[in-house]
Each structure stands twice: as structure tokens, then as C-alpha cells.
């Protein structure tokens, strides 16, 4: 089985790495893929919360690399989808508790069982980042349409390229198409102009993300969330399907208007 190891990174914090990891992972599992989400943000773990699996954690990634438990014991099974697992980060340790070499070995173990290994990278460019990219073959960079985020994404792409990632791909998160159209926010072209890498997807700003994070239910499981729909498209593109990129244009189709009338659409 050929497995894909994808690291989801951004440099800057708070742009939606964890949300993106949770949603793409869940969407892939919804498509029947065997997926494991790997939280490498040791000391500041969040992915378990976003997935709603916090109370099921017994062992974590540091336990696995220190042989305190077997890999199978630390893999937390998702409550909704068959084939979706989470390998949580430790909350009481620090980033240095794991080395890039250990991470590589761990991922090689996971490759035997899973089709998709999504690595949630911590913010920053220090050891946490080096751990996260150690075993990955592909990289997805998340950026929001803000100068600071794009600047950090640019730095990260430079570091990824220096580490041998040939073509990192970009997800633009939290785009407000109306603001971009008015020129009050960077638009897709402005960002691509600077970063000049392939666009994997565009996720619109969506209040439902806050709700879904608090509930521990990824937005892709919701049928009307716009961000959820965008993440489902991203997941399909990752599996190699030719899906058009959502560009932030409001669809005012008859169905959409009808949905709004019956208050289904947000």
C-alpha cells in the first residue's frame, strides 16, 4: 500500500493548521480512506479537542517513542468514522521530548497501516517544526489573507524547499471574498503572486468553524457549512480527483436561495 504522509504547516500560529488537519482527515475518512492524524504540537495539543476525542486519550506520542506503550495503544479511534485514528501529542512534555529521527521511525510504522498520515505541525520554525516535517513526503502550507501570515508562509516554504520538499501546496484559509473584492483584504492573486506555489484550496471565513471546534465535530461533517464544503473539495483533490478550486465567489443558485429561505444555509 502506497501511503501519503502530508505535513500541514504555516509558520504563524492561529491560521488554522489544526482545523485544516482535522477537517481534511475527517473528509478523507468519509471517503472511506484509512487515515491517521498525528499531533506534533507537544505541550500545546489541540487536535484531540477539535476532533472531540480529548477524553479518550490514554497514551500519547511521547509514550510511543519512549516505548512506554505499543503504537496500537496510543492510536485513539475516532467516534464517527471507521478508519480514522488520532495519535495525540503529549501535553505535559516539551517539543524536545521527540527527535526528528524518532518521528521518522514512527511514521514508517504508521505507513504499514494507513493510506494517509496527516501531520499537524506546531507554529514556529524550531524543533517542533523539524520534528513534524521529518517523516513527511508532502507539505501543505496554510495561510490566511494577511501580510503577516503570508510572510511567515513564505519563510516556511523556503525552509521546506531547503529540506527537500519539491512542491509544497497552499491552502488559503478564512478568505472573506467580499472584503477581498473591495480591496480591503489580500485576494487570492495577491497571495499567489508572492508565494508562487500551487493552490490546493481556498476556505472561506465561516462562523460555523468556531461552533464545530467547540463541539469537537469537524465542519466537514456538517452539510451546509461553507468551510466544510471547501475542505471536502480539498480532500478530493488530495486523493487525485480533478475538482475545481473554490474561489470565494458567492453562489446564488436557486437551491442556495431556497436553502436560505428555509434557514438551512448559513
Amino acid at each position: 500500500m502506497e501511503s501519503k504522509v502530508i505535513v500541514i504547516t504555516s509558520g504563524k500560529g492561529g491560521v488554522g493548521k489544526t482545523t485544516t488537519t482535522a477537517n481534511i482527515g475527517t473528509a478523507l475518512a468519509m471517503m472511506g480512506k484509512k487515515v491517521v492524524l498525528l499531533d506534533t504540537d507537544i505541550g500545546l495539543r489541540n487536535l484531540d479537542v477539535v476532533m472531540g476525542l480529548e477524553n479518550r486519550i490514554v497514551f500519547d506520542i511521547v509514550d510511543v517513542v519512549n516505548n512506554n506503550c505499543k503504537l496500537q495503544q496510543a492510536l485513539t479511534k475516532d467516534k464517527r468514522y471507521e478508519g480514522l485514528y488520532l495519535l495525540p501529542a503529549a501535553q505535559t512534555k516539551e517539543k524536545t521530548a521527540v527527535s526528528p529521527h524518532q518521528m521518522k521511525n514512527l511514521i514508517n510504522e504508521l505507513k504499514k497501516e494507513f493510506e494517509f498520515i496527516l501531520v499537524d505541525c506546531p507554529a514556529g520554525i524550531e524543533q517542533g517544526f523539524r520534528n513534524a516535517i521529518a517523516g513527511a513526503d508532502e507539505a501543505v502550507v496554510v495561510a490566511t489573507p494577511e501580510i503577516s501570515s503570508v510572510r511567515d508562509a513564505d519563510r516556511i516554504i523556503g525552509l521546506l524547499e531547503a529540506s527537500g520538499f519539491r512542491e509544497p501546496k497552499l491552502i488559503i484559509n478564512r478568505l472573506r471574498s467580499k472584503m477581498a473584492k473591495r480591496g480591503d483584504m489580500m485576494d487570492i492573486d495577491d497571495i499567489l503572486d508572492i508565494l508562487s506555489i500551487e493552490l490546493l484550496g481556498v476556505v472561506p471565513e465561516d462562523e460555523y468553524i468556531v461552533v464545530s471546534t467547540n463541539r469537537g465535530e469537524p465542519a466537514v461533517t456538517d452539510t451546509v457549512s461553507k468551510a466544510g464544503a471547501a475542505y471536502r473539495r480539498v480532500a478530493r483533490r488530495i486523493t487525485g480527483q480533478d475538482v475545481e478550486i473554490y474561489t470565494g465567489e458567492e453562489t446564488s443558485s436557486l437551491v442556495n436561495r431556497f436553502m436560505k429561505m428555509v434557514k438551512l444555509a448559513r
Binding site: 510572510r151 519563510r155 523556503g158 525552509l159 508572492i194 508562487s196
Partner: peptide, 24 residues
Amino acid sequence: KSLRSGQKILADGNVVILGDINPG
């Protein structure tokens, strides 16, 4: 190639870049 944020080139002589010099 293009220079991305955090990358720096030092040269004694002239430099020609077939690409962009990004902010940072």
C-alpha cells in the same frame, strides 16, 4: 530561483537573480 523570507545571499561581486526577492 526566488529568494523567500529569511533567505539571504551574500556576494563579493555582482548578483543577477532570475526570480523574485520576497519581503523578508
